[in-house]
Design a protein around this nucleic acid. Structure first.
Length: 498
RNA sequence: GGGCCGUUAGCUCAGCCGGUAGAGCAUCUGACUUUUAAUCAGGUGGUCGCGUGUUCGAACCACGCACGGCCCA
Protein backbone atom coordinates (compact mmCIF):
# COMPACT_ATOMS: atom_id res chain seq x y z
CA UNK A 1 0.00 0.00 0.00
CA UNK A 2 1.10 3.51 -0.62
CA UNK A 3 1.06 6.05 2.14
CA UNK A 4 0.05 8.85 -0.18
CA UNK A 5 -2.51 11.15 1.32
CA UNK A 6 -2.95 13.57 -1.54
CA UNK A 7 -5.36 13.49 -4.43
CA UNK A 8 -4.59 16.14 -6.92
CA UNK A 9 -4.71 14.80 -10.44
CA UNK A 10 -0.96 14.22 -10.38
CA UNK A 11 -1.25 12.24 -7.18
CA UNK A 12 -4.14 10.19 -8.48
CA UNK A 13 -2.05 9.34 -11.52
CA UNK A 14 0.98 8.57 -9.35
CA UNK A 15 -1.06 6.09 -7.31
CA UNK A 16 -2.16 4.33 -10.46
CA UNK A 17 1.39 4.34 -11.79
CA UNK A 18 2.47 2.58 -8.61
CA UNK A 19 -0.07 -0.11 -9.38
CA UNK A 20 1.20 -0.31 -12.94
CA UNK A 21 4.78 -0.63 -11.72
CA UNK A 22 3.76 -3.62 -9.60
CA UNK A 23 2.22 -5.15 -12.71
CA UNK A 24 5.39 -4.54 -14.68
CA UNK A 25 7.40 -6.12 -11.89
CA UNK A 26 5.12 -9.14 -11.97
CA UNK A 27 5.54 -9.87 -15.68
CA UNK A 28 3.66 -8.68 -18.71
CA UNK A 29 1.77 -5.52 -17.81
CA UNK A 30 -0.05 -5.15 -21.12
CA UNK A 31 -1.09 -8.68 -22.07
CA UNK A 32 -2.99 -9.45 -25.24
CA UNK A 33 -3.96 -13.09 -24.89
CA UNK A 34 -7.54 -12.95 -23.67
CA UNK A 35 -10.54 -13.65 -25.88
CA UNK A 36 -13.96 -12.90 -24.47
CA UNK A 37 -16.78 -15.21 -25.53
CA UNK A 38 -19.76 -13.13 -24.38
CA UNK A 39 -21.16 -9.62 -24.40
CA UNK A 40 -22.91 -7.99 -21.46
CA UNK A 41 -26.05 -6.95 -23.32
CA UNK A 42 -26.48 -10.32 -24.97
CA UNK A 43 -26.25 -12.08 -21.62
CA UNK A 44 -28.89 -9.76 -20.19
CA UNK A 45 -31.06 -10.34 -23.22
CA UNK A 46 -30.75 -14.10 -22.91
CA UNK A 47 -30.81 -14.67 -19.17
CA UNK A 48 -32.42 -11.72 -17.36
CA UNK A 49 -35.69 -13.58 -17.02
CA UNK A 50 -34.21 -16.96 -16.18
CA UNK A 51 -35.22 -18.90 -13.14
CA UNK A 52 -32.65 -18.26 -10.44
CA UNK A 53 -32.09 -21.88 -9.40
CA UNK A 54 -32.16 -23.29 -12.89
CA UNK A 55 -29.60 -20.75 -14.06
CA UNK A 56 -27.30 -21.54 -11.18
CA UNK A 57 -27.68 -25.28 -11.78
CA UNK A 58 -26.57 -24.83 -15.39
CA UNK A 59 -23.20 -23.36 -14.26
CA UNK A 60 -22.95 -21.36 -17.49
CA UNK A 61 -19.38 -20.20 -17.78
CA UNK A 62 -18.65 -16.95 -19.62
CA UNK A 63 -15.60 -14.83 -20.41
CA UNK A 64 -15.96 -11.07 -20.70
CA UNK A 65 -13.62 -8.13 -21.08
CA UNK A 66 -14.26 -4.45 -20.51
CA UNK A 67 -13.79 -1.54 -18.20
CA UNK A 68 -14.47 -1.65 -14.51
CA UNK A 69 -16.79 1.35 -14.16
CA UNK A 70 -17.78 1.06 -10.52
CA UNK A 71 -17.08 -1.12 -7.53
CA UNK A 72 -18.65 -1.86 -4.17
CA UNK A 73 -16.29 -3.56 -1.76
CA UNK A 74 -17.88 -5.23 1.27
CA UNK A 75 -14.98 -6.75 3.10
CA UNK A 76 -14.37 -10.19 1.72
CA UNK A 77 -16.81 -9.91 -1.18
CA UNK A 78 -17.34 -7.23 -3.77
CA UNK A 79 -19.48 -6.19 -6.68
CA UNK A 80 -18.13 -4.41 -9.70
CA UNK A 81 -19.65 -3.27 -12.98
CA UNK A 82 -17.95 -4.27 -16.17
CA UNK A 83 -18.75 -2.26 -19.30
CA UNK A 84 -18.06 -3.67 -22.73
CA UNK A 85 -19.10 -2.39 -26.14
CA UNK A 86 -22.62 -3.69 -25.68
CA UNK A 87 -23.41 -2.50 -22.17
CA UNK A 88 -22.77 -3.41 -18.56
CA UNK A 89 -22.94 -6.47 -16.40
CA UNK A 90 -22.31 -6.91 -12.69
CA UNK A 91 -19.44 -8.99 -11.38
CA UNK A 92 -19.57 -10.69 -7.98
CA UNK A 93 -16.15 -11.40 -6.53
CA UNK A 94 -15.70 -13.48 -3.38
CA UNK A 95 -12.42 -13.77 -1.57
CA UNK A 96 -13.09 -17.50 -0.93
CA UNK A 97 -13.28 -18.24 -4.58
CA UNK A 98 -10.27 -16.33 -5.78
CA UNK A 99 -6.84 -17.07 -4.41
CA UNK A 100 -5.80 -14.77 -1.54
CA UNK A 101 -3.50 -12.97 -3.92
CA UNK A 102 -6.31 -12.75 -6.46
CA UNK A 103 -8.55 -10.82 -4.13
CA UNK A 104 -5.82 -8.45 -3.05
CA UNK A 105 -4.97 -7.87 -6.66
CA UNK A 106 -8.61 -7.12 -7.39
CA UNK A 107 -8.63 -4.55 -4.61
CA UNK A 108 -5.72 -2.86 -6.31
CA UNK A 109 -7.67 -2.41 -9.54
CA UNK A 110 -8.66 1.17 -10.25
CA UNK A 111 -11.89 2.43 -11.74
CA UNK A 112 -11.48 2.54 -15.49
CA UNK A 113 -9.10 -0.41 -15.65
CA UNK A 114 -9.72 -2.80 -18.50
CA UNK A 115 -10.20 -6.24 -17.03
CA UNK A 116 -11.01 -9.80 -18.03
CA UNK A 117 -13.48 -11.82 -15.99
CA UNK A 118 -14.38 -15.49 -16.15
CA UNK A 119 -17.07 -17.13 -14.09
CA UNK A 120 -20.58 -18.49 -14.10
CA UNK A 121 -23.90 -16.71 -14.42
CA UNK A 122 -26.24 -16.29 -11.48
CA UNK A 123 -28.97 -13.99 -10.28
CA UNK A 124 -28.48 -12.01 -7.09
CA UNK A 125 -31.07 -11.81 -4.38
CA UNK A 126 -32.14 -8.44 -5.70
CA UNK A 127 -32.73 -10.14 -9.04
CA UNK A 128 -29.81 -8.86 -11.11
CA UNK A 129 -28.06 -11.12 -13.58
CA UNK A 130 -24.40 -11.18 -12.56
CA UNK A 131 -21.22 -13.12 -13.08
CA UNK A 132 -19.89 -15.13 -10.17
CA UNK A 133 -16.23 -14.53 -10.84
CA UNK A 134 -13.75 -17.38 -10.62
CA UNK A 135 -10.85 -15.67 -12.27
CA UNK A 136 -10.03 -12.05 -12.84
CA UNK A 137 -7.17 -10.38 -14.68
CA UNK A 138 -6.13 -6.87 -15.43
CA UNK A 139 -5.60 -6.35 -19.17
CA UNK A 140 -4.87 -2.63 -19.32
CA UNK A 141 -4.21 -0.24 -16.47
CA UNK A 142 -6.03 3.09 -16.68
CA UNK A 143 -3.62 5.73 -15.44
CA UNK A 144 -6.03 8.63 -15.37
CA UNK A 145 -9.15 8.90 -13.24
CA UNK A 146 -12.42 8.69 -15.18
CA UNK A 147 -15.17 11.30 -14.84
CA UNK A 148 -17.57 10.78 -11.97
CA UNK A 149 -19.76 7.69 -12.17
CA UNK A 150 -23.14 9.26 -11.51
CA UNK A 151 -23.27 12.48 -13.51
CA UNK A 152 -20.82 11.29 -16.09
CA UNK A 153 -19.07 13.92 -18.17
CA UNK A 154 -21.27 16.94 -18.83
CA UNK A 155 -18.78 19.63 -19.80
CA UNK A 156 -19.55 20.25 -23.49
CA UNK A 157 -16.04 21.24 -24.37
CA UNK A 158 -14.46 18.15 -22.85
CA UNK A 159 -17.13 15.95 -24.38
CA UNK A 160 -16.09 17.14 -27.84
CA UNK A 161 -12.35 17.42 -27.29
CA UNK A 162 -12.04 14.07 -25.51
CA UNK A 163 -14.88 12.18 -27.13
CA UNK A 164 -13.54 8.88 -25.77
CA UNK A 165 -14.42 10.02 -22.26
CA UNK A 166 -17.88 11.03 -23.42
CA UNK A 167 -18.38 7.64 -25.05
CA UNK A 168 -17.12 5.81 -21.97
CA UNK A 169 -19.32 7.62 -19.51
CA UNK A 170 -22.45 8.67 -21.40
CA UNK A 171 -24.70 5.97 -22.72
CA UNK A 172 -26.69 8.47 -24.75
CA UNK A 173 -23.59 9.43 -26.70
CA UNK A 174 -23.03 5.77 -27.58
CA UNK A 175 -26.68 5.56 -28.63
CA UNK A 176 -26.36 8.58 -30.95
CA UNK A 177 -23.39 7.17 -32.80
CA UNK A 178 -24.91 3.71 -33.05
CA UNK A 179 -27.97 5.29 -34.66
CA UNK A 180 -25.74 7.27 -36.99
CA UNK A 181 -24.19 4.04 -38.20
CA UNK A 182 -27.57 2.36 -38.58
CA UNK A 183 -28.85 5.31 -40.63
CA UNK A 184 -25.94 5.06 -43.03
CA UNK A 185 -26.20 1.28 -43.24
CA UNK A 186 -29.90 1.52 -43.95
CA UNK A 187 -29.50 4.11 -46.69
CA UNK A 188 -26.73 2.10 -48.31
CA UNK A 189 -28.87 -1.04 -48.30
CA UNK A 190 -31.93 0.85 -49.52
CA UNK A 191 -30.09 2.35 -52.50
CA UNK A 192 -28.45 -0.98 -53.31
CA UNK A 193 -31.89 -2.55 -53.38
CA UNK A 194 -33.02 0.13 -55.81
CA UNK A 195 -30.24 -0.68 -58.23
CA UNK A 196 -27.79 2.07 -57.27
CA UNK A 197 -24.05 1.44 -57.29
CA UNK A 198 -21.86 2.97 -54.61
CA UNK A 199 -18.80 4.76 -55.95
CA UNK A 200 -15.93 6.89 -54.72
CA UNK A 201 -15.04 10.08 -56.55
CA UNK A 202 -12.18 12.50 -55.87
CA UNK A 203 -11.96 14.48 -52.67
CA UNK A 204 -9.34 16.76 -54.22
CA UNK A 205 -10.63 18.79 -57.13
CA UNK A 206 -8.69 20.96 -59.56
CA UNK A 207 -11.87 22.99 -59.98
CA UNK A 208 -14.22 23.06 -56.99
CA UNK A 209 -17.81 22.60 -58.11
CA UNK A 210 -21.25 21.22 -57.46
CA UNK A 211 -22.27 23.80 -54.90
CA UNK A 212 -21.96 27.47 -54.14
CA UNK A 213 -19.51 27.58 -51.23
CA UNK A 214 -15.96 28.58 -50.40
CA UNK A 215 -13.49 25.69 -50.64
CA UNK A 216 -10.38 24.73 -48.68
CA UNK A 217 -7.23 25.02 -50.75
CA UNK A 218 -4.31 22.66 -50.77
CA UNK A 219 -1.26 22.07 -52.89
CA UNK A 220 0.11 19.03 -54.62
CA UNK A 221 3.90 19.21 -54.41
CA UNK A 222 4.92 16.76 -57.14
CA UNK A 223 2.48 18.21 -59.63
CA UNK A 224 3.01 21.71 -58.25
CA UNK A 225 -0.66 22.40 -58.60
CA UNK A 226 -3.37 23.97 -56.53
CA UNK A 227 -6.14 21.61 -55.46
CA UNK A 228 -9.38 22.16 -53.59
CA UNK A 229 -11.05 19.87 -51.11
CA UNK A 230 -14.38 19.10 -52.65
CA UNK A 231 -17.43 21.13 -51.69
CA UNK A 232 -19.66 18.47 -53.32
CA UNK A 233 -19.17 15.32 -55.40
CA UNK A 234 -21.94 16.27 -57.85
CA UNK A 235 -20.04 16.99 -61.04
CA UNK A 236 -18.03 13.77 -60.81
CA UNK A 237 -21.08 11.65 -60.14
CA UNK A 238 -22.74 13.15 -63.20
CA UNK A 239 -19.66 12.35 -65.28
CA UNK A 240 -20.41 8.75 -64.29
CA UNK A 241 -23.91 9.13 -65.77
CA UNK A 242 -22.21 10.14 -69.01
CA UNK A 243 -20.13 6.98 -68.64
CA UNK A 244 -23.23 4.82 -68.52
CA UNK A 245 -23.41 4.20 -64.77
CA UNK A 246 -27.09 4.99 -64.66
CA UNK A 247 -27.63 4.80 -60.93
CA UNK A 248 -24.78 5.83 -58.65
CA UNK A 249 -24.40 7.11 -55.14
CA UNK A 250 -21.69 8.23 -52.77
CA UNK A 251 -21.78 8.72 -49.02
CA UNK A 252 -18.78 10.64 -47.89
CA UNK A 253 -17.28 13.88 -46.68
CA UNK A 254 -17.46 17.28 -48.30
CA UNK A 255 -15.64 20.35 -47.02
CA UNK A 256 -16.70 23.97 -46.88
CA UNK A 257 -14.49 26.76 -45.66
CA UNK A 258 -17.14 28.61 -43.72
CA UNK A 259 -18.10 29.44 -40.16
CA UNK A 260 -19.02 26.90 -37.51
CA UNK A 261 -22.50 26.76 -36.05
CA UNK A 262 -24.94 24.32 -34.54
CA UNK A 263 -25.69 23.24 -38.11
CA UNK A 264 -22.29 23.63 -39.79
CA UNK A 265 -19.05 21.71 -39.40
CA UNK A 266 -16.28 22.40 -41.94
CA UNK A 267 -16.35 18.75 -42.94
CA UNK A 268 -19.68 17.04 -43.15
CA UNK A 269 -21.17 13.92 -44.62
CA UNK A 270 -23.38 13.97 -47.68
CA UNK A 271 -25.25 11.34 -49.55
CA UNK A 272 -25.54 12.14 -53.23
CA UNK A 273 -27.34 9.86 -55.66
CA UNK A 274 -28.11 10.13 -59.35
CA UNK A 275 -30.63 8.23 -61.40
CA UNK A 276 -30.81 8.31 -65.21
CA UNK A 277 -34.21 8.34 -66.88
CA UNK A 278 -35.82 9.79 -63.79
CA UNK A 279 -36.97 13.29 -62.90
CA UNK A 280 -37.34 15.26 -59.69
CA UNK A 281 -40.82 13.89 -59.05
CA UNK A 282 -39.38 10.38 -58.98
CA UNK A 283 -36.75 11.46 -56.48
CA UNK A 284 -39.29 13.12 -54.21
CA UNK A 285 -41.19 9.84 -54.17
CA UNK A 286 -38.02 7.87 -53.53
CA UNK A 287 -36.96 10.25 -50.73
CA UNK A 288 -40.34 9.96 -49.10
CA UNK A 289 -40.23 6.18 -49.18
CA UNK A 290 -36.66 6.09 -47.95
CA UNK A 291 -37.22 8.40 -44.98
CA UNK A 292 -40.45 6.72 -43.97
CA UNK A 293 -38.91 3.27 -44.03
CA UNK A 294 -35.76 4.54 -42.30
CA UNK A 295 -37.76 5.86 -39.37
CA UNK A 296 -39.77 2.64 -39.31
CA UNK A 297 -36.56 0.61 -39.28
CA UNK A 298 -35.03 2.64 -36.45
CA UNK A 299 -38.01 3.15 -34.18
CA UNK A 300 -40.61 0.69 -35.42
CA UNK A 301 -42.99 3.61 -35.85
CA UNK A 302 -43.77 6.32 -38.38
CA UNK A 303 -43.93 8.94 -35.66
CA UNK A 304 -40.75 10.70 -34.66
CA UNK A 305 -40.10 13.07 -31.76
CA UNK A 306 -37.18 15.45 -31.82
CA UNK A 307 -36.37 18.74 -30.10
CA UNK A 308 -39.88 19.07 -28.73
CA UNK A 309 -41.65 18.48 -32.04
CA UNK A 310 -43.52 15.41 -33.16
CA UNK A 311 -43.34 14.41 -36.80
CA UNK A 312 -45.80 12.17 -38.51
CA UNK A 313 -44.25 10.45 -41.51
CA UNK A 314 -47.06 8.09 -42.44
CA UNK A 315 -49.02 10.74 -44.35
CA UNK A 316 -47.87 11.90 -47.80
CA UNK A 317 -45.31 14.68 -47.41
CA UNK A 318 -46.54 18.14 -48.29
CA UNK A 319 -45.42 19.61 -51.63
CA UNK A 320 -45.57 23.30 -52.55
CA UNK A 321 -43.64 25.78 -54.65
CA UNK A 322 -41.33 28.47 -53.31
CA UNK A 323 -43.84 31.17 -54.24
CA UNK A 324 -46.79 29.28 -52.77
CA UNK A 325 -44.94 28.83 -49.50
CA UNK A 326 -44.05 32.54 -49.28
CA UNK A 327 -47.69 33.45 -49.84
CA UNK A 328 -48.82 31.02 -47.19
CA UNK A 329 -46.49 32.28 -44.49
CA UNK A 330 -46.81 35.97 -45.35
CA UNK A 331 -50.52 36.80 -45.30
CA UNK A 332 -51.21 40.01 -47.19
CA UNK A 333 -48.46 39.46 -49.72
CA UNK A 334 -49.79 39.02 -53.25
CA UNK A 335 -48.45 36.78 -55.96
CA UNK A 336 -48.20 39.74 -58.36
CA UNK A 337 -45.98 41.51 -55.83
CA UNK A 338 -43.63 38.51 -55.68
CA UNK A 339 -43.44 38.05 -59.42
CA UNK A 340 -41.99 41.46 -60.26
CA UNK A 341 -38.47 42.58 -59.36
CA UNK A 342 -39.17 46.08 -58.03
CA UNK A 343 -42.20 45.12 -55.94
CA UNK A 344 -40.40 42.00 -54.62
CA UNK A 345 -37.43 44.16 -53.66
CA UNK A 346 -39.76 46.63 -51.91
CA UNK A 347 -41.36 43.72 -50.06
CA UNK A 348 -37.98 42.47 -48.91
CA UNK A 349 -37.13 45.91 -47.58
CA UNK A 350 -40.47 46.10 -45.78
CA UNK A 351 -39.64 42.74 -44.17
CA UNK A 352 -36.18 44.09 -43.21
CA UNK A 353 -34.46 41.53 -45.41
CA UNK A 354 -31.20 42.71 -46.89
CA UNK A 355 -30.98 42.45 -50.67
CA UNK A 356 -28.03 43.54 -52.78
CA UNK A 357 -28.72 45.81 -55.77
CA UNK A 358 -27.31 43.16 -58.11
CA UNK A 359 -29.84 40.51 -57.01
CA UNK A 360 -32.34 39.43 -59.63
CA UNK A 361 -35.93 38.48 -58.93
CA UNK A 362 -35.12 34.84 -58.17
CA UNK A 363 -32.46 35.69 -55.63
CA UNK A 364 -34.77 38.22 -53.96
CA UNK A 365 -37.53 35.60 -53.75
CA UNK A 366 -35.14 33.09 -52.21
CA UNK A 367 -33.98 35.61 -49.61
CA UNK A 368 -37.62 36.18 -48.65
CA UNK A 369 -38.23 32.44 -48.61
CA UNK A 370 -35.22 31.72 -46.39
CA UNK A 371 -36.06 34.44 -43.89
CA UNK A 372 -39.79 34.00 -43.64
CA UNK A 373 -40.56 30.38 -44.53
CA UNK A 374 -37.74 27.89 -43.92
CA UNK A 375 -37.74 27.80 -40.14
CA UNK A 376 -41.51 27.33 -40.13
CA UNK A 377 -41.51 24.21 -42.31
CA UNK A 378 -41.91 21.85 -39.39
CA UNK A 379 -43.75 18.82 -40.76
CA UNK A 380 -42.05 17.05 -43.70
CA UNK A 381 -42.38 19.29 -46.75
CA UNK A 382 -41.00 19.40 -50.27
CA UNK A 383 -40.57 22.91 -51.66
CA UNK A 384 -40.34 23.01 -55.47
CA UNK A 385 -39.81 25.42 -58.36
CA UNK A 386 -36.61 27.12 -57.24
CA UNK A 387 -35.59 30.10 -59.38
CA UNK A 388 -33.14 29.29 -62.17
CA UNK A 389 -30.99 32.18 -60.97
CA UNK A 390 -30.07 30.27 -57.78
CA UNK A 391 -29.96 26.79 -59.37
CA UNK A 392 -27.07 26.75 -61.82
CA UNK A 393 -26.96 22.96 -62.23
CA UNK A 394 -30.69 22.25 -62.44
CA UNK A 395 -32.85 21.72 -65.47
CA UNK A 396 -35.28 24.53 -66.32
CA UNK A 397 -38.99 23.87 -66.12
CA UNK A 398 -40.51 23.29 -69.56
CA UNK A 399 -43.44 25.63 -68.95
CA UNK A 400 -41.70 28.35 -66.93
CA UNK A 401 -37.95 28.49 -67.59
CA UNK A 402 -37.48 31.12 -64.85
CA UNK A 403 -37.70 28.24 -62.39
CA UNK A 404 -36.08 24.81 -62.31
CA UNK A 405 -37.37 21.29 -61.77
CA UNK A 406 -35.86 21.33 -58.31
CA UNK A 407 -36.96 20.62 -54.77
CA UNK A 408 -35.62 20.91 -51.30
CA UNK A 409 -36.88 18.83 -48.42
CA UNK A 410 -37.53 20.42 -45.03
CA UNK A 411 -38.40 18.98 -41.67
CA UNK A 412 -38.19 20.65 -38.28
CA UNK A 413 -37.46 23.95 -40.02
CA UNK A 414 -34.26 22.58 -41.48
CA UNK A 415 -33.19 21.75 -45.00
CA UNK A 416 -32.28 18.08 -45.17
CA UNK A 417 -32.21 17.36 -48.90
CA UNK A 418 -31.82 19.14 -52.23
CA UNK A 419 -32.58 17.48 -55.54
CA UNK A 420 -33.45 18.23 -59.11
CA UNK A 421 -33.83 17.08 -62.64
CA UNK A 422 -30.31 17.47 -63.97
CA UNK A 423 -29.31 20.02 -66.54
CA UNK A 424 -27.90 17.92 -69.39
CA UNK A 425 -27.92 20.55 -72.13
CA UNK A 426 -24.22 21.42 -72.46
CA UNK A 427 -24.91 24.81 -74.03
CA UNK A 428 -27.32 25.84 -71.29
CA UNK A 429 -24.86 24.58 -68.65
CA UNK A 430 -22.02 26.52 -70.28
CA UNK A 431 -24.14 29.67 -70.23
CA UNK A 432 -24.97 29.14 -66.55
CA UNK A 433 -21.29 28.63 -65.71
CA UNK A 434 -20.42 31.84 -67.54
CA UNK A 435 -22.97 33.68 -65.46
CA UNK A 436 -21.52 32.19 -62.27
CA UNK A 437 -18.00 33.09 -63.38
CA UNK A 438 -19.14 36.67 -63.96
CA UNK A 439 -20.56 36.80 -60.45
CA UNK A 440 -17.31 35.43 -59.07
CA UNK A 441 -15.41 38.12 -60.99
CA UNK A 442 -17.77 40.68 -59.48
CA UNK A 443 -16.71 39.56 -56.01
CA UNK A 444 -19.05 36.72 -55.03
CA UNK A 445 -16.61 34.26 -53.46
CA UNK A 446 -19.21 31.53 -53.32
CA UNK A 447 -20.07 31.63 -57.04
CA UNK A 448 -19.08 28.65 -59.16
CA UNK A 449 -16.08 28.26 -61.43
CA UNK A 450 -16.41 27.55 -65.13
CA UNK A 451 -15.70 23.81 -65.37
CA UNK A 452 -14.68 23.19 -69.00
CA UNK A 453 -13.93 19.53 -68.41
CA UNK A 454 -17.46 18.98 -67.15
CA UNK A 455 -18.93 20.76 -70.18
CA UNK A 456 -16.89 18.44 -72.42
CA UNK A 457 -18.41 15.46 -70.62
CA UNK A 458 -21.92 16.84 -71.13
CA UNK A 459 -21.16 17.29 -74.84
CA UNK A 460 -20.78 13.52 -75.13
CA UNK A 461 -24.33 13.28 -73.82
CA UNK A 462 -25.60 12.79 -70.29
CA UNK A 463 -28.86 10.88 -70.16
CA UNK A 464 -31.89 12.67 -68.77
CA UNK A 465 -31.53 12.21 -65.03
CA UNK A 466 -32.29 13.46 -61.59
CA UNK A 467 -29.98 13.73 -58.62
CA UNK A 468 -30.17 14.55 -54.96
CA UNK A 469 -28.02 15.35 -51.96
CA UNK A 470 -28.96 14.57 -48.38
CA UNK A 471 -27.11 16.02 -45.41
CA UNK A 472 -26.47 12.97 -43.29
CA UNK A 473 -25.40 14.93 -40.21
CA UNK A 474 -28.59 16.98 -40.15
CA UNK A 475 -30.66 13.87 -40.74
CA UNK A 476 -28.94 12.15 -37.83
CA UNK A 477 -29.51 15.23 -35.65
CA UNK A 478 -33.21 14.87 -36.34
CA UNK A 479 -33.24 11.14 -35.72
CA UNK A 480 -31.23 11.30 -32.48
CA UNK A 481 -32.90 14.40 -31.03
CA UNK A 482 -29.57 16.25 -31.06
CA UNK A 483 -29.62 20.05 -30.88
CA UNK A 484 -26.24 20.56 -32.56
CA UNK A 485 -24.23 19.01 -35.35
CA UNK A 486 -21.35 18.56 -32.91
CA UNK A 487 -23.39 15.96 -31.10
CA UNK A 488 -23.54 13.73 -34.18
CA UNK A 489 -19.93 14.08 -35.36
CA UNK A 490 -17.46 12.00 -33.36
CA UNK A 491 -14.68 14.55 -33.46
CA UNK A 492 -16.12 17.96 -34.29
CA UNK A 493 -13.74 20.78 -35.16
CA UNK A 494 -12.65 22.90 -32.22
CA UNK A 495 -10.26 25.79 -31.86
CA UNK A 496 -6.85 24.82 -30.60
CA UNK A 497 -6.63 25.25 -26.88
CA UNK A 498 -3.46 26.76 -25.37
C1' G B 1 -18.57 39.85 -36.89
C1' G B 2 -22.32 41.48 -32.66
C1' G B 3 -25.00 40.43 -27.92
C1' C B 4 -25.69 37.48 -23.56
C1' C B 5 -23.91 33.51 -20.35
C1' G B 6 -20.08 30.25 -18.49
C1' U B 7 -14.78 28.73 -16.87
C1' U B 8 -13.83 27.10 -8.72
C1' A B 9 -10.65 19.87 -6.34
C1' G B 10 -9.78 14.26 -11.12
C1' C B 11 -15.59 14.64 -12.09
C1' U B 12 -20.51 17.12 -10.84
C1' C B 13 -21.49 21.59 -8.54
C1' A B 14 -22.19 25.52 -4.20
C1' G B 15 -19.69 29.98 -2.71
C1' C B 16 -24.53 36.01 -0.03
C1' C B 17 -22.76 42.84 0.51
C1' G B 18 -15.02 42.20 -1.42
C1' G B 19 -12.39 39.64 4.42
C1' U B 20 -7.81 34.63 1.46
C1' A B 21 -12.54 28.14 -0.34
C1' G B 22 -17.01 24.22 0.51
C1' A B 23 -20.23 19.71 -0.62
C1' G B 24 -21.13 14.99 -3.13
C1' C B 25 -18.52 11.40 -5.99
C1' A B 26 -13.53 9.67 -6.89
C1' U B 27 -8.96 8.88 -3.96
C1' C B 28 -6.46 7.27 0.99
C1' U B 29 -7.02 4.59 6.14
C1' G B 30 -10.30 1.33 8.99
C1' A B 31 -15.06 -1.91 9.35
C1' C B 32 -18.16 -4.95 6.35
C1' U B 33 -19.12 -12.30 2.28
C1' U B 34 -25.73 -10.42 -2.14
C1' U B 35 -24.32 -4.72 -3.14
C1' U B 36 -26.06 -1.59 -7.02
C1' A B 37 -25.48 6.60 -6.72
C1' A B 38 -23.69 0.22 -1.23
C1' U B 39 -23.27 1.72 3.96
C1' C B 40 -20.53 3.48 8.49
C1' A B 41 -16.12 6.16 10.80
C1' G B 42 -11.78 9.15 9.84
C1' G B 43 -8.30 11.72 6.35
C1' U B 44 -5.85 13.90 1.86
C1' G B 45 -6.76 17.06 -2.09
C1' G B 46 -7.27 24.16 -4.83
C1' U B 47 -2.08 29.21 -8.96
C1' C B 48 -10.73 29.83 -8.18
C1' G B 49 -9.15 29.91 -17.11
C1' C B 50 -4.96 33.73 -18.06
C1' G B 51 -3.28 38.88 -17.52
C1' U B 52 -3.69 43.90 -15.84
C1' G B 53 -6.10 47.33 -12.72
C1' U B 54 -9.12 49.20 -8.32
C1' U B 55 -8.68 48.14 -2.99
C1' C B 56 -5.72 47.68 3.42
C1' G B 57 -7.72 43.13 1.28
C1' A B 58 -10.27 40.12 -5.04
C1' A B 59 -13.02 33.50 -6.69
C1' C B 60 -16.30 37.91 -6.15
C1' C B 61 -15.55 44.67 -8.81
C1' A B 62 -13.36 46.93 -13.72
C1' C B 63 -10.71 46.26 -18.33
C1' G B 64 -8.31 43.00 -21.78
C1' C B 65 -7.34 38.04 -23.64
C1' A B 66 -8.28 32.62 -24.35
C1' C B 67 -11.65 28.62 -24.69
C1' G B 68 -16.72 26.98 -24.59
C1' G B 69 -22.23 27.55 -24.80
C1' C B 70 -26.73 30.05 -26.53
C1' C B 71 -28.90 33.75 -29.68
C1' C B 72 -28.42 37.14 -33.85
C1' A B 73 -26.13 38.66 -38.79
Amino acid sequence: MTDEHHSTEDELIAQRRDHLQRLRDGGIAYPNDFSPDSLAAELHHQFDNSDKDELLAKQLRVKLAGRMMSRRIMGKASFADLQDRSGRIQLFVKKDELSEQGYDTFKEFDLGDIIAAEGYLFITKTGELSIHVESLRLLTKSLRPLPEKFHGLTDQETRYRQRYLDLLTNEDTRRVFMIRTRVINFIRAFLNQHGFTEVETPMMHPVPGGATARPFKTHHNALDMELFLRIAPELYLKRLLVGGMDRVFEINRSFRNEGLSTRHNPEFTMLEFYQAYANYHHLMDLTETMLRSLVMELFNSTTLSSQGETYELSRPFRRMTVVESILQFNPGVTEAELRELNSARALAEKLKIHVEPKYGLGKVQIEIFEKTVESRLIQPTFITAYPTEVSPLARCNDVDPSVTDRFEFFIGGREIANGFSELNDPDDQAARFHKQADEKAAGDQEAMHYDADYITALEYGMPPAAGEGIGIDRLVMLLTDSPTIRDVILFPHMRLKE
